[in-house]
């Protein structure tokens, strides 16, 4: 335990081209980029599936099925298949990012379509009946009410990406995972445990950020943070979207 603390507090590990700040930056870059790409792809797709009900069967099965695929195996397979066709750093970076995106899409997709689907049918009916057009129903009613699950999906995806980015150190990518993998290979327990503490702290921080975001963008009328709430408004708001490595 003392060794781990000593490693973490050693100033030398906080400086330079292989220091903690740089690795943290890399980790955030890989994770943030993958999450952004996945969100740009999956949020609109999920909202569309939820709004129209089209492609629902496919979305359910793809997002469910991908949960069973181990991320480590997927990562290795991607590097071996794509790596040789790309040159230099891209041979690691692109397949890794691709895997991160692939793993981040299912929870985001599931959150978005489940979020829209669980919107009170009466509210949707009223929206149309009052003369909202399709996109107005989507933007003014479905999206605000789907927000808790959309963000819940994004949070699950963020955790998945942060965790898998750690594993990507085994294929030569940077990030905080380097400390764990390098520590493992040279049997330096202080280094790997120190790295593990950093990774765990980052994951907690990211989740906390997600919780704050949720608080900021979700209407108090939807979360029921205004005192008395009925079972109807609470239902569905807590659907869990588990997908992790």
């Amino acid at each position: 335990m003392n060794d781990v603390l000593k490693w973490l507090t050693d100033g030398a590990h906080w400086r330079g081209g292989e220091g903690i700040p740089l690795r943290l930056g890399e980790h955030l870059l890989y994770s943030g980029l993958a999450l952004l790409v996945a969100a740009v792809l999956a949020v609109p797709l999920g909202l569309w599936v939820g709004h129209t009900g089209r492609g629902r069967y496919l979305a359910v099965n793809v997002s469910g099925g991908l949960r069973a695929v181990p991320s480590l195996g997927l990562l290795f397979a991607a590097i071996m298949l794509l790596g040789p066709r790309l040159s230099g750093e891209a041979g690691v970076f692109i397949p890794s990012e691709l895997v991160l995106v692939v793993l981040a899409v299912p929870p985001i997709l599931a959150g978005a379509y489940a979020g829209v689907e669980q919107v009170d049918a009466a509210a949707r009916d009223a929206a149309r009946g009052m003369g909202m057009r399709g996109w107005q129903v989507l933007w003014q009613v479905e999206v605000p009410n789907a927000m808790p699950l959309v963000i819940s999906g994004l949070r699950s995806a963020a955790l998945q990406v942060v965790a898998t980015a750690t594993l990507a150190a085994t294929v030569g990518l940077g990030g905080l995972g380097r400390f764990l993998i390098d520590g493992l290979s040279v049997r330096d327990y202080a280094q790997m445990a120190g790295g593990a503490v950093l990774v765990a702290a980052l994951a907690l921080l990211v989740d906390l950020l997600g919780a704050t975001l949720q608080r900021l963008v979700v209407s108090p009328g939807v979360t029921g943070q205004t005192g008395r709430s009925t079972a109807r408004t609470r239902r569905g708001g807590r659907l869990r979207l588990a997908l992790r490595s």
């Binding site: 480590l72 290795f76 490595s245």
Partner: peptide
Amino acid sequence: VAAVSNVSIVSVAALIGVPQLGSLFTDGF
């Protein structure tokens, strides 16, 4: 949900040298 998630996560233990299906990934890689 827990079962499917567990089966997937256990494979990561190959990196710390605990043998299971994940070892096939590290072997192959």
